[in-house]
Design a protein around this nucleic acid. Structure first.
Lengths: 242, 242
DNA sequence: TAGTGGTCTAGACCACACG
DNA sequence: GTGTGGTCTAGACCACTAC
């Protein structure tokens, strides 16, 4: 606790960093309870209030979930609300509904340089490529092209994917130990090419949203690049600014 | 401090509500300092910690800005960083630059029912309509169509707009006392019609982002509806998910 | 030096879940 | 009842700003 160095950070942030390390190392698994605040306080030799402030930030960032009277739990993609937490697509009218996923292709490949760059790999490193369609009420709406580092997803194949029910991120965290924490998206408008048009059942040239997403796990390590093409005739992408 | 009623809220939230009321009533103007935490604590008869927790949330929501050693200030759209706080458009490569605004039209009109609905007006109530273009480095990129309740923006005309330098929201808060706090956006892809194509200097049919925004002031009162058409050949809309 | 926000502590009590 | 997180308090000290 020396005086302010260029890298000074308050105690509660140091505690937070330790907690994130433990989470990233898998010391506590998704869905499991974390030790209570008083226990962590005594473990780290700080007051409960300091642990609480660290935990406040972790809860804000959706790394943990607190349940009054029960404890604090490692966040999961399993929960109802979070099944499609990262999909910002909503119907223009009517109730939101869960999409069906239609798997189109799974293959191994070598990372081209642009994908290698965003995934922090070397060009030519192995990746897994998943192509799939999200279907809302019978209507194909999202055409996804997903790239993952092969090293983290050994054994991921069509059988695994089709056997799984729920979101991809649920599968990734339960079967491959990789939990997606946050993501950045870049959105453009483009005209459907032949592949997209036939998959989404629209005329070639139809304007689509092109959503490029990089998803990160603990410690801001990028572990997924995905390009999604969205039909927006009956749906829209929703965002809140503050 | 009665026991938990259906509308129970902790003390610090009650304090927060009082503070938001004062902000909304204009008791402290944008840019001005708010009374210190100890003063507010004694005013409301609570501890400094409780005021602090209320203020924490207000700072998170960008309603106030805290400066260590100086005080807490009502947030403003003036600050460098926030000049285009609500514009999520970034160049595909190169440094972000501030856009120039080119005013196309200002007029008074009657609110059609759809706009009346989102602005919480009655159909036929007076509105102000602004059409403008945002130009980045000489390239027209955003075509905005903005609707405001006339009752809140008396005297807003072309002269006022052209005389003003800085963002629209800076003008709204400094000249009309309406501060935009947050906004919701809905994004679609569509093909440029003739008006958009000529304004944005692209061929008719070019895919564009269509960004519908509703902006809110204190107390979640909607005070602006805006439809923006974005060229995304050299820019993209950026978003962070967590 | 005085005043502000920022951190940390210790302890009290409340609300909730579970046995 | 016991243990958990949630709130509230009071007081100490630190870091920054202004005079």
């Amino acid at each position: 606790m020396s005086t302010a160095s260029p890298t000074f950070s308050p105690l509660y942030r140091q505690i937070k960093r330790l907690l994130v390390q433990s989470l990233g190392a898998g010391e506590w698994k998704p869905g499991q309870a974390i030790p209570s605040e008083v226990e962590l306080a005594s473990r780290y030799g700080v007051s409960q209030g300091t642990v609480r402030k660290a935990m406040d930030e972790l809860a804000d960032e959706n790394l943990v979930v607190r349940r009054q009277g029960k404890g604090t739990f490692v966040a999961t993609h399993d929960e109802e609300v979070h099944l499609v937490r990262f999909l910002r697509l909503f119907p223009n009218d009517g109730q939101a509904q869960y999409p069906q996923s239609r798997l189109l292709e799974v293959k191994r490949a070598r990372a081209p340089s642009d994908i290698a760059r965003v995934l922090d790999l070397k060009a030519g490193d192995g990746i897994v490529v998943i192509r799939r369609l999200l279907v809302f009420g019978g209507e194909p709406t999202v055409f996804d092209d997903i790239a993952l580092p092969a090293s983290l997803f050994r054994g991921l194949d069509a059988a695994t994917l089709t056997a799984h029910h729920g979101s991809l991120y649920t599968l990734f965290e339960s079967k491959f130990g990789t939990r997606m924490i946050r993501a950045d998206e870049r959105i453009r408008a483009l005209a459907a090419d032949e592949a997209a048009a036939s998959a989404l059942e629209v005329p070639v040239g139809t304007p689509l949203l092109c959503v490029d997403r990089v998803a990160y796990t603990y410690g801001d390590r990028p572990v997924e690049f995905r390009r999604g093409l969205y039909r927006t005739d009956k749906h829209h992408y929703r965002n809140s600014l503050s």
